[in-house]
Design a protein around this nucleic acid. Structure first.
Length: 516
RNA sequence: GGCCCGUUCGUCUAGGGGUUAGGACGCAAGGUUUUCAUCCUUGUAGCAGGGGUUCGAAUCCCCUACGGGCUACCA
């Protein structure tokens, strides 16, 4: 590669960015980092009608959460700015005009009604193609059919017009795609796409080519949905005389719905119980809420890891990759060509892997807000220790509560099935002895407690499981959770003894009344 | 409909002429554990179909089928 690597992620702020977009951003980012190039974030907001308030901020925040940092962009600035197309609107017109001047484009004045009529007409005749193309453009109202005089008159009188690209009649356009190899398109099936809209804004096609050129983009890495417009873009580079500086293209496979047909879309997630958005998004008009990975208890590292593996793999058996490792291993020749179905179960597994190996401090920072929601206040060192004990059984951040609630409040109920199976006539007597034993246990630490209790059980020839479960019932309320010898020191001597006392009373009552 | 892209276990994938077609998720069984979870072991299941090319095809070519994308003054 003899050119500086410069790639861009170019989302349009028409709504929340979904994980397909995040993955595109990620691949761009990985590629840029790997070759020490630049990753540019460009906002493509040329469609004023589809502008959605807050969408741009959402994009920035999502990328931040994912730890994908642009080198240049709206927020970062940079030498090729501005990085928002609406802020660049003044530069596109001259390029569109240039194409007209050189005969690669033309003005068109057709109204929406006229276009409609044309399509209907062609449809009725079962035309292979109902688009504005080489075979119909000479029948429409444009600068190819109207006299120069009339064209000038219309434009100067302020009549609305667009600029369309004049597609060559019958020519094979061969383009190389890094992922797919050579692809041939015949221009006969292409249409005279609008480059410049009557509202004074360029369309994606014009803006994207002009900006990629001006920003010296070396590689265009985008979703497969753009593959069909690739020949148009190539023709545009050619029309401008920029073919020498045309970027290389890589069209990524799409992320498909977990079941059924089509690419992953907005409503799939909440329908099937997984997020499709990185961050929660609330539709301002309808108030509809779309869940996000962050709010659903996913770790951003896990999301990055699982997204990286949707359409790419390192060719080795390792599956857990940090961002640094991804950067090191990423390459286009290991990007898959076919679309990948999103698998929520595998996503869950990835998250579990990351929660298990996550540092207790960070985990507790993430878990703390959930505790606050429950009205629980706890010291962070205590929460850290709790997280350390239960993290391996949590798939999501909030699962920690499910596995640790007994650390924060004494049991109010006792699992009846467990009482029935494990509580015995003499359980209260034995537990009473354990209370006495624990009272004398100092320091109240894991090893000491364990030794004392084990000695007690064996010297009295008691059933280990029976005693331990009775004890667990008192402390936890059911037969779940980490090792009791780990739980007790965290709870503290006083609380442990108090819980056993309460447990003896309450469980005995249940047991005697035969409620179990 | 037209054009383009694709097709290996249910899902994500390894594999580029000779493999018992490998791994992961899921699922199932067993083991470990005072409990739950983790963990370990084992099992489950796949080259879309048909033609070629070849001594030999998951691998190369063609056709069919199926899936997907695009087909807007949207990106």
């Amino acid at each position: 590669m003899n050119r500086n690597i410069r790639v861009r992620f170019a989302p349009s702020p028409t709504g929340p960015l979904h994980i397909g977009g995040i993955r595109t951003a990620l691949y761009n980012y990985l590629f840029a980092r790997k070759y020490e190039g630049s990753f540019i974030l460009r906002i493509e907001d040329t469609d004023q009608a589809r502008f959605v308030a807050g969408a741009e901020e959402y994009i920035f925040e999502s990328l931040k959460w994912c730890n994908i940092k642009p080198d240049e962009g709206v927020e970062e600035g940079g030498p090729y700015g501005p990085y928002r197309q609406s802020d660049r609107r003044h530069i596109y017109n001259q390029y569109a005009e240039e194409l007209v001047k050189h005969g690669f484009a033309y003005y068109a004045f057709d109204t929406a009604e006229e276009l409609d009529k044309m399509r209907k007409y062609l449809e009725e005749r079962h035309a292979a193609n109902t688009s504005y193309n080489t075979s119909v453009r000479m029948k429409m109202k444009n600068s190819l059919t109207l006299s120069q005089n009339e064209v000038e008159q219309r434009i100067s009188s302020g009549a609305p017009y667009v600029i369309r690209f004049k597609i060559p009649e019958n020519e094979d356009i061969e383009v190389y795609d890094i992922i797919r190899g050579n692809i041939v398109f015949n221009t006969a099936v292409l249409d005279d796409k609008i480059l410049y809209k009557s509202d004074g804004m360029p369309t994606y096609h014009l803006a994207n080519v002009v900006d990629d050129y001006l920003m010296e983009i070396s590689h265009v890495i985008r979703g497969e949905e753009w593959l069909s417009s690739l020949p148009l873009h190539v023709l545009l580079y050619r029309g401008f005389g920029w073919q020498e500086r045309m970027p290389q293209f890589a069209h990524l496979p799409l992320i498909l719905k977990p079941e059924g047909a089509g690419k992953l879309s907005k409503r799939d997630g909440d329908k099937l119980g997984f997020p499709v958005f990185p961050l929660e998004w609330k539709e301002t008009e309808t108030g509809e809420i779309f869940s996000g990975y962050r709010e659903s208890g996913y770790l951003s590292e896990a999301v990055i890891n699982l997204l990286a593996f949707l359409g790419w793999n390192p060719g080795a058996e390792q599956e857990i990759f940090s961002m640094e490792e991804l950067i090191k291993s990423f390459s286009f020749d290991r990007v898959i060509k076919s679309g990948a179905r999103f698998d929520p179960e595998k996503a869950k597994w990835f998250n579990h892997q990351y929660i298990m190996k996550m540092d207790n401090k960070r985990l507790s920072d993430l878990f703390m807000p959930y505790l606050t929601t429950k009205g629980i206040e706890a010291e962070s060192i205590f929460v850290e220790n709790v997280c350390g004990l239960v993290k391996e059984r949590a798939n999501f951040i909030m699962d920690i509560w499910k596995h640790s609630h007994f650390f924060f409040h004494a049991p109010e109920e006792y699992d009846k099935e467990v009482i029935k199976k494990r509580w015995k006539e003499d359980s209260p007597v034995q537990l009473q002895k354990i209370i006495e034993l624990l009272q004398k246990t100092t320091p109240f630490e894991r090893e000491v407690i364990e030794r004392n209790i084990k000695d007690f059980i064996s010297s009295n020839s008691l059933n280990f499981g029976q005693i331990m479960i009775a004890l667990r019932l008192c402390l936890v309320g059911s037969s779940m959770g980490p090792e009791l010898f780990d739980i007790m020191p965290l709870l503290g001597k006083d609380e442990v003894i108090r819980r056993i006392e309460v447990g003896i009373n309450k469980i005995s009552v249940l047991y005697e009344k035969g409620w179990v």
